[in-house]
Simulated assay, not measured.
Amino acid sequence: MKKRDAYEQEILAAYEKGELETTSPSKGDLSKFKAAATATFIKDRRINIRLSSPDLMDIQARALEEGIPYQTFIASILHKYASGRLVEKPSNLTSRSTRTLRDKAAQRRLALR
C-alpha cells in the first residue's frame, strides 16, 4: 500500500477525531454534475482495432490490475491521451510482448550454437 503524504495524514486524523462533516450538493448542483458527467462520457462512436495477441493480453492484465473491464480501460487510455492527461505508471507485471521477444531471441541464440 502506498504511504500517505502529510495532507492525507491530516485528513485521516480529522476523520478519526470526528471533525469532518458530510455535506450534500444542492439539487441544482447535483443535476448540473449529472448532466456534465453524462455529456462527457457519451459513447456514440464505435471503432475496430487490430492488436497483437501479446499486446491484448498485456492490456487485459493491466485492466485487471485496475479492476475494470479491458475495453473500458482502453477507452480510458484513449480519452486521457486525447485530453493530454495521459501519465504512464509502471506495471507490476512483466510484459508478454517483451517476454515473447526475449524468448524468441534466446531461442535464436540456442539455434545458432
Rank of each mutant, 00 (worst) to 15 (best):
M1K: 08
R4E: 07
R4D: 06
R4G: 02
D5T: 01
A6W: 05
Y7N: 07
Q9V: 15
Q9R: 15
E10Q: 14
I11A: 11
L12Q: 15
A14C: 05
Y15I: 00
Y15D: 00
K17G: 05
G18Y: 00
E19S: 01
E19I: 07
L20E: 04
E21W: 03
T22N: 00
T22C: 01
T22K: 04
T23C: 05
S24G: 00
S24A: 14
S24I: 10
P25H: 03
S26R: 01
K27V: 06
K27H: 08
K27C: 08
K27Y: 11
D29E: 15
S31W: 02
F33Q: 14
K34I: 13
K34N: 11
A35D: 13
A37C: 14
A37S: 13
A37K: 10
T38M: 08
T40C: 10
K43H: 11
D44Y: 01
D44L: 08
D44W: 00
R45D: 07
R45K: 05
R45F: 02
R46V: 02
I49L: 15
L51Q: 10
P54D: 12
P54W: 03
P54V: 05
D55L: 09
L56N: 05
Q60C: 13
A61N: 10
A63Y: 08
A63R: 03
G67K: 09
I68P: 04
I68V: 11
I68F: 03
P69V: 03
P69I: 02
T72C: 09
F73C: 05
F73E: 03
I74S: 06
S76I: 08
S76L: 10
K80A: 13
Y81L: 15
Y81F: 14
S83M: 08
G84E: 11
R85W: 03
R85A: 08
V87F: 10
E88W: 13
K89T: 07
P90L: 03
P90D: 12
L93R: 15
R99P: 00
R99A: 14
L101S: 01
L101E: 08
R102S: 05
K104P: 03
A105Y: 06
R109P: 00
R109M: 09
A111W: 07
L112A: 14
